[in-house]
Design a protein around this nucleic acid. Sequence first.
DNA 1: ACCCAATTCAAACAGTAGTTTGAATTTAAC
DNA 2: GTTAAATTCAAACTACTGTTTGAATTGGGT
Lengths: 222, 222
Amino acid sequence: MAMDTKTQILNAAEQLFAEHGFGDTSLRAITTEAKVNLASVNYHFGSKKQLIQEVLQRYLKVFMPQVDQQVKALLAEHPQPSVEQVFTSLVKPLLLLNQVRPDGTALFVRLLGRGYSESQGHLRKYITFHYGQMLKNFVDAVHLAVPELSKAELFWRLHFAIGTFVFTMASSKALSEIALADYQQQVTVEGIIHRLMPYISAGVGAKAHVSMNQSNPVLEIA
Amino acid sequence: MAMDTKTQILNAAEQLFAEHGFGDTSLRAITTEAKVNLASVNYHFGSKKQLIQEVLQRYLKVFMPQVDQQVKALLAEHPQPSVEQVFTSLVKPLLLLNQVRPDGTALFVRLLGRGYSESQGHLRKYITFHYGQMLKNFVDAVHLAVPELSKAELFWRLHFAIGTFVFTMASSKALSEIALADYQQQVTVEGIIHRLMPYISAGVGAKAHVSMNQSNPVLEIA
DNA sequence: ACCCAATTCAAACAGTAGTTTGAATTTAAC
DNA sequence: GTTAAATTCAAACTACTGTTTGAATTGGGT
């Protein structure tokens, strides 16, 4: 059955992509794991690039609307939310992905990490293009929480937050192993997500200030 | 002259590694840029892997002792430093790298970002092995600044901080272009470093707290 | 001028990548 | 049961990778 083959490829691909990254996962490794023929990837998906997109899309199409919904619900109840409230509205949508696929949350955040690290901005553009409005809604909600930050400062803070999140998730397997070996901590992706919230919230909400021993390092034109 | 060839390779390599990553930079691209013969890389460095190490080593051997010195100086004057003071002690050593090579600071932080993202823990182990004591000194200094955090919590916070730093730096070129286009900001790596300090400091120093709608996600064994 | 080691060079090697091909097979509709 | 489309398959193709080879060239010491 065709649908079966396609799904088997997606499942094997996301697993290997999350673990080894997109570049270091060959189509042969995927088709071997999925127990399908090598050519079936190009038959069903056209190219490796499109396969990667469909792997991500399977989660994004669930995740993004969920976030949008959560943010709207938060703002309805708290017109002036805290930073932590806004970022915590990501948690439920993330955990919901476990219903898309077994261990879906962990897979998605790792894929997101890989995508951001390896795709040199492609993923960013892809998300902006397909979910621009939802993205804007989220950014606006953060701005409501920290109105004292300029739009430019907010831009940087949000990308710092993305960096924190994405790097941690991409490295989550390694970090979990270290935490277990060195601190006897049994860690789950869910646990890491919750640990991240205070850090990111405090970071994004930090008071901006000019540097000490440095004449204005950022030039504002116009 | 041999030394010339070796240096030309290092210079071309770091440039291309920083821009495209280690995996996506071929030896042929490097030797073409350096205007040397393809085989000279293996002749002078043995392998691509060793070339990558020497590229990083050129900066690390300057950077790490400088950090150690800064931290010791800080603690001598402030036995109970603030988080921001500890992290700000990274700034001078970073900027000093501009004396190692033109634009050395930017090159180093990007290489560091690439190394952490692409080398699946190899770089982490390399640094731990070669600069273990200096690393420990820095971690201890951070712990002095936030004694209320457990060692395990500190471990996570520091890796969050690494993530923030590394991802931002690896993406710094793209982010700078966006900032210029969308916010008319002329950004330098130096400027980004200074912008990062409040975020990282606030994040690392944030009060840890158990999550709201989640029964203890992290299990402490023993 | 000679020699020997260091270095450079063009070429080939072995391995892997994504993709394409065309025949074989399966599937579903009539 | 026949037919036609959809799918699977083994194999080959093209392109690119890091590395090695052995000859040519260079440079410094005597």
